[in-house]
């Protein structure tokens, strides 16, 4: 789907954590992002959406969240548990 270029990682999280089939996962992610399902793979829409939400963009923008910082936001946005995020938050007592 394009990973961080679009919404591939987000759909991946839903299949992994909620065992959602592809169309259900896409619908869920689109709803959380407030966009149309069709736009999940539209780079033009997703670039700005990701930047606005702080969930990581594919190019390296100084100061823009990536890695754990982006994943914390993703877990919140999608309302899912990500094991590495839970561990990190427990380690920093958040």
């Amino acid at each position: 789907m394009g990973g961080l270029r679009t919404a591939g990682d987000l759909v991946g999280w839903m299949q992994m954590t909620r065992k959602m089939k592809i169309n259900e996962a896409k619908k869920y992610v689109a709803q959380k992002l407030g966009i149309e399902v069709f736009d999940l793979t539209n780079e033009e829409v997703m670039r700005q959406t990701r930047e606005d939400l702080g969930i990581g963009v594919v190019t390296s923008v100084a100061g823009s969240p990536k890695g754990m910082r982006a994943k914390i936001k993703i877990a919140e946005l999608l309302d899912i548990h990500i094991n590495s995020v839970d561990l990190f938050l427990s380690q920093v007592k958040l």
Binding site: G3, L4, D9, I55, K66, G67, I74, S84, F88
Partner: peptide
């Protein structure tokens, strides 16, 4: 590595 990745790893 998981501290650095954003996509499911």
């Amino acid at each position: 590595i998981s501290m650095m990745t954003t996509a499911p790893f």
